[in-house]
Design a protein around this nucleic acid. Structure first.
Length: 955
DNA sequence: TACTTCACG
DNA sequence: GACGTACGTGAAGTAT
């Protein structure tokens, strides 16, 4: 990070926070109220086991912890607003009148944050009738007069007016020091003129009116020219621009009122004397008790770690430290280090000699974090732009490879462009790193390493062994929160990394990474490798504590190179067929649209649910309509189907239109655009840490929801084809989730039916409805099938009734009979819900945990939802685990058999392969065998295979 | 950016 | 009797 003041050390030894080190004496005034709101909005909603929301409490606690680790202040105070109204409302009642109501999830957190402040043993300040900002101004003045340096800890621009001699600001969210230069950057004037600028520009958030038509830029210009607000207003007549002159004269009083609103009160009464704001030694046991009660496991770990380091183990009754922080133990695991105190040393590596140092460091420590930068998010075709490495917390480098050469690469000559910087040729870098990246004694750590693995593979390097901090987090905390690097850095390191959009911009002005200047690229890329290593250091040991090593090591981690290969292989599409389908659909959509408009008696946008609802229910008056919490009419397919059954032909036509419009926009049009020119194929990305249950997901494009259920949809599936001379093989598990229900709940009758190879829906129908198999009707079987599915989803009478179009009463009696026939199921469902309530998570048969926030929720609807999730997650998750076991074994099994089959896609219970025609039968049989043998239960696993020249035929 | 709808398992 | 319902995803389009 580069300090914008330009006053600190130059790269490569940039300062830790991109700012002058915080002063280690003096007074720190923390804007508590500001933090509550920022933390609340910055962090995803999270709750403690009892359902109390705590995201703002977590953000706040993290901030305090980081602050206390960063600075050795002699005095700290956390300052809060006391009430919504203050003295400003007396002369301007509308002040902050536009503020939205405090969100419900935030309200209970105010008291907890006061508690947190006490638990940290920090003094707090608040005063009726004054804002936190006024108290900050007052105490800043007092300290300044006493000759003590002051740091205001806040991200609020309204406090910038206080910056001056002896008073600085520090924004802990952005890790940024704010001095006079930063204030000038923001307001265009020195801090003492900030109120004048704000008085003119106003502030829509706080409802400060200012002068209409004048923004910060103009205000700064005027104040610079005239010196201050009063002089400006007194000389308003002299302003040249007529509109501006007129506004300033007309709104002079409003500007003066605005100044009174933004001017902070530095002479407020003092709730506590300045001397009382001393930092006291925290009561660690109390602090840990508080943090534990909120469920903040990672912070507790950090506090305990710092206590160990400080030799305070005994008084907290903690076990002795297993390792010295920073040291490497017998397993090659680096013990966690308190990260906030580590200094950043980022280096740009532009020649092989400098690189050599990093390779030696990796050899010495046995661990290195690796991250790649590219010009695209599709690793199968992206150009490698740079590589970053980190070998210790704070110690990282960036190796640029293709910066500033975009024009040259495109074969264009641009004599005005600066020459590309000195860079190691990509092939030379690969040659230099190959030994290290393939060295079995050096662990390579990445965050979402699948991406990087693919890039190295394309450059002839098979990275091994690897660890993935994203997948470790997923195994540890799946369902509790997301696992992206930025989110984890906030959560575990109390740090906000430089965002990609800060570096590359967004929207139309977005640039690719090769266009990023080297100094910025270094800050961003080196930081990614640094954070990856820090996260790994923190999270890896937790796998052992959480007994999640097996899940990670045998299910998720081995998948990285395998899925990287699938993505890289991509799948072939018949572009001509898609094009013809698009054209055909376009013609039919126009026809249907004409029909619908005629039936409606007017033209409107059929794709707009709002307009459609109004046409159907207001204009045509087809029934009552109205639904949904937003007050809009629901027009989803169940509503339209009902209308169609009542004989309203417009409803059926709209359904037809919807289906075709969906197929065209989401599939036949979009898929063509996803064909990569470089390979002629489509390369999806499988997300390995996206779902709450352990399933994969597929994006860009999503190839796990290609149509199949309708005849029109099947045409799209037939556009997925094998390369010439090859075939596609599809192998899918038969009824895997229902088999797992039988296994996990130990339902004897169901297990017998599966063992006997019966038609499972007919068999359950026979059991539940007492109809002999030879008298089974399709309708009875359909009902049994719906119940079977319902079980997997955490059945409810209401849901089943909607599915079957029967009354909830009938549905409930079906469920009752079902649970009587399969009595073991009820026991299992109750036990599973109870386990979820006790632990806050459920487990798959292979030990993967799925956290269930909401299982303790006071709201019965949300709790019921969590209970259904608790039933479904072990079933869906175990099926996902089994599929992962199969996928981990298939490539090796194929290779051992000398097969050239390539795995292409996974669709939850199905695998798709491409294979030379002559090997198809053999490969299909082999894959079936591996899938069926992926787990061994008392219920057999059955997989079925199909072969064809396209996906529709193979399935 | 949020909501609605719908494609799949 | 509350509450709003089948579980898990991702993408496109409209409305704000």
């Amino acid at each position: 990070m580069t300090d914008s003041t330009g006053t600190t050390a130059p790269a490569p030894t940039a300062d830790l926070d991109g700012a002058a080190a915080p002063d280690r004496s003096g007074l720190y005034l923390v804007d508590g109220s500001g933090f509550i709101f920022r933390a609340f909005h910055a962090l995803p909603m999270m709750t403690r086991p009892d359902g109390t929301p705590v995201n703002a409490v977590l953000g706040f606690s993290n901030m305090l912890l980081k602050l206390l680790a960063d600075v050795k202040a002699e005095a700290v105070a956390v300052v809060f607003d006391s009430a919504r109204l203050n003295f400003r409302n007396e002369f301007y009642p509308d002040y902050k009148a536009h503020r939205p109501e405090t969100p419900e999830e935030l309200k209970p957190q105010f008291a907890l944050i006061r508690e947190a402040t006490d638990a940290f043993c920090l003094p707090s300040l608040e005063l009726d009738g004054y804002e936190a900002d006024d108290l900050i101004a007052t105490y800043a003045r007092l300290a300044q007069e006493a000759g003590r340096p002051v740091t205001i800890v806040s991200s609020d621009k309204d406090l910038m007016q206080l910056v001056g001699p002896g008073v600085a600001m520090y924004d802990p969210m952005k890790n940024k020091h704010i001095g006079p230069d930063e204030v000038f950057e923001k307001f265009g004037v020195q801090p003492d003129k900030v109120v004048d600028v704000q008085a003119l520009a106003g502030d829509s958030v706080d409802n400060v009116p200012g002068v209409p038509g004048i923004g910060v830029k103009t205000a700064a210009q005027l104040i610079t020219e005239y010196g201050d607000l009063d002089t400006l207003l007194a000389n308003a007549e002299k302003i040249k621009q007529p509109a501006r002159r007129q506004k300033l004269i007309e709104f002079a009083d409003q500007a003066r009122v605005s100044r009174r609103l933004v001017q902070l009160e530095a002479n407020a009464p003092q709730p506590k004397p300045l001397e009382d704001l001393r930092v006291r030694e925290p009561d660690h046991r109390r602090l840990i008790d508080f943090l534990k009660a909120q469920g903040f496991r990672s912070i507790v770990a950090r506090v305990e770690m710092e206590m160990k380091r400080d030799g305070r183990i005994a008084d907290a009754g903690l076990p002795a430290s297993p390792a010295t922080p920073g040291a490497v133990d017998a397993d090659g695991v680096v013990a966690p280090q308190p990260t906030a105190t580590v200094e950043k040393r980022y280096e740009l590596v532009q020649d092989l000699a400098a690189l050599e140092v990093w390779v030696r460091r990796a050899q010495a420590s046995g661990v290195i974090a690796v991250d790649t930068e590219t010009n695209s998010l599709t690793p199968a075709t992206a150009t490698l732009v740079g590589v970053s490495l980190s070998t210790a917390p704070g110690l990282a480098c960036y190796i640029p490879l293709a910066h500033g050469s975009a024009a040259a690469a495109a074969g264009q000559l641009d004599f005005d462009a600066p020459p590309p910087p000195k860079q190691i040729p990509t092939a030379d870098l690969m040659a230099a790193l190959k030994g290290m990246l393939e060295d079995p004694a050096i662990l390579k750590v990445g965050h979402n390493f699948k991406f990087d693995h693919q890039l190295f593979a394309r450059n002839g390097v098979t990275v091994s062994p690897i660890d993935d901090s994203m997948l470790i987090s997923y195994a540890l905390d799946g369902g509790a929160h997301g696992h992206g690097m930025d989110e984890l850095a906030e959560l575990h390191l109390a740090y906000t990394p430089i965002s990609f959009k800060e570096v590359c911009g967004t929207g139309k002005t977005q640039i690719t990474f090769d266009q990023v200047p080297l100094d910025k690229a270094l800050d961003y890329a080196a930081e990614d490798a640094d954070i990856t290593l820090r996260l790994w250091t923190l999270l890896k040991p937790r796998l052992v504590e959480a007994r999640m090593v097996t899940v990670y090591e045998t299910l998720d981690r081995p998948l990285v190179p395998i899925i990287a290969d699938m993505e890289r292989a991509g799948v072939r599409l018949d572009q001509d067929a898609l094009k013809r389908l698009s054209q055909d659909l376009a013609v039919r959509l126009v026809e249907i649209e004409k029909d619908v408009h005629q039936l409606a008696g007017q033209s409107f946008n059929i794709g707009s649910p709002k307009q459609l609802g109004e046409i159907l229910f207001d204009v045509m008056k087809l029934g009552a309509g109205k639904k949904g919490k937003t007050g809009a009419y629901s027009t989803d397919s169940s509503v339209l189907e009902e209308l169609a059954e009542q004989g309203h032909s417009i409803a059926q036509r709209v359904l037809d239109w919807r289906q075709l419009a969906k197929l065209k926009s989401t599939y036949t049009d979009a898929l063509q655009e996803k064909i990569e020119a470089l390979t002629g194929r489509v390369h999806t990305a499988f997300a390995l840490a996206a779902t709450n249950t352990g399933r994969l997901s597929s994006t860009d494009p999503n190839l796990q929801n290609i149509p199949i259920r309708t005849e029109e949809g099947k045409k799209i599936r037939r556009a997925f084809i094998a390369a010439p001379g090859n075939r596609l093989i599809s192998v899918d598990y038969s009824q895997i989730e229902l088999r797992l229900v039988a296994e996990m709940a130990n339902i004897q009758a169901l297990k017998d039916a599966f063992r006997d190879g019966l038609d499972i829906h007919a068999a359950t129908a026979a059991q539940v409805f007492g109809v002999p198999l030879d008298q089974m009707t399709p309708d009875i079987r359909r009902k049994a099938k719906a119940i079977n599915f319902g079980i997997i989803y955490g059945i409810s009478g209401f849901g089943l009734s909607r599915q079957l179009g029967i009354t909830p009463g009938e549905a409930n009696s079906f469920i009752k009979t079902y649970l009587e026939r399969f009595h073991e199921l009820k026991v299992w469902m109750e036990a599973t819900k109870s386990f979820a309530r006790d632990h806050g998570y459920v487990e798959t048969l292979f030990g993967r945990r799925c956290y269930m926030p909401g299982i303790q929720d006071k709201n019965p609807a949300r709790r019921a939802f969590a209970e259904r999730q608790a039933i479904n997650a072990p079933i869906q998750g175990t099926a996902a685990d089994i599929m992962k076991r199969a996928m981990n074994r298939v490539p090796a099994a194929l290779a051992a058999a000398g097969s050239h089959a390539q795995m292409l896609l996974q669709v939850h219970d199905e695998l798709l392969f491409e294979v030379p025609e002559a090997e198809a039968e053999q490969a299909a049989a082999l894959v079936r065998a591996v899938m069926e043998g992926a787990a061994s239960f008392s219920v057999p696993l059955v997989a079925e295979a199909g072969i064809g020249s396209n996906w529709g035929e193979a399935h």
